[in-house]
Simulated scan of single mutants.
Amino acid sequence: MYPTDREPIVITSLYPVLASSDVPAAARFYAELLGMSPTFTSDWYVSLRSGDAELAVVDADHATIPERARGARAAGVLVTVEVDDVDAVHTRVVADGGHDLLLPLRDEEFGQRHFIVAGPDGALVDIVTPIAPSEEFAALYS
């Protein structure tokens, strides 16, 4: 199903860069929601980091974006952020207000406790803590 006869690629970093119509506002959203700090800031690009996790925001109309893709929104993008205590993050998000909570905090049979908020420019942000899967799910996929 997956190619195994190829030489592996050495990946040194992998992170989402989300196109935005308002880079400062989007960067502020992710910094506040996820407790991230900027590592690089310009008027068209902001890189944020927390520990080993990195996320960046780029101006959707910047010249580095291929012309036919400029202005594109992040519709269909789901950014999953695994945290050690999803309940604490959910409590903070609800207390802060102003976030568009699309999926309330819940447990999934496949082994996640999570909630989803709407991010800027159409991205969805899925805040997750792994939990044990249900016995039924585990029996199907063991």
Rank of each mutant, 00 (worst) to 15 (best):
V10W: 08
E135H: 08
V77C: 07
L34D: 02
L18G: 05
L105K: 04
E54C: 06
F137E: 01
D107N: 10
R113M: 06
H90E: 03
V58D: 07
A138I: 00
V83R: 02
D43N: 14
D61R: 13
V46T: 14
R70C: 01
G76W: 09
Y30T: 09
L102D: 10
A60G: 13
A56C: 05
A27K: 12
H90R: 13
R68W: 14
E67P: 05
D5S: 08
E32H: 09
A74C: 13
A88I: 05
S47I: 10
D52K: 11
A123G: 07
D96C: 06
D107F: 02
L48Y: 12
I9A: 15
T80S: 15
S20H: 05
M1C: 04
E32V: 11
V81R: 04
H62N: 15
L14C: 12
V83Q: 11
V10A: 15
H62F: 14
E7C: 02
E54P: 00
V86K: 02
F115V: 03
P16T: 11
L105I: 08
V23H: 10
V57W: 09
A25S: 14
L34Q: 01
L102T: 12
P8M: 01
H99K: 05
G51W: 06
I131R: 05
S142K: 12
P120A: 01
I65G: 05
D5N: 11
A31D: 03
S21L: 02
R106Y: 09
Q112P: 02
A60P: 02
V89W: 07
V128H: 08
L14G: 05
S13E: 13
F29S: 06
P66S: 06
G111W: 00
L34A: 08
V10Y: 06
P66Y: 08
L78D: 15
L102N: 00
G76S: 08
V93E: 01
M36N: 06
S21T: 10
V79K: 09
A26Q: 07
E67I: 00
L102W: 10
L103F: 07
T39R: 07
E54R: 06
W44P: 02
P8R: 12
P38R: 01
T4A: 03
P24A: 07
F40A: 13
L18M: 12
R92Q: 10
L33R: 04
P104E: 15
H99C: 06
L101N: 07
S13H: 14
A60T: 10
G97T: 03
V86I: 07
G71F: 02
P130W: 09
A123V: 13
P8Y: 03
G97V: 12
Y2I: 10
L140Q: 13
V117S: 03
R113V: 12
G71A: 05
F110Y: 15
T129N: 11
V79I: 14
Y2H: 14
A118K: 05
S50F: 03
R106Q: 13
S42D: 09
Y141Q: 00
F137G: 00
I65N: 04
E32Q: 14
D52M: 13
S13K: 11
Y141R: 00
Y15N: 10
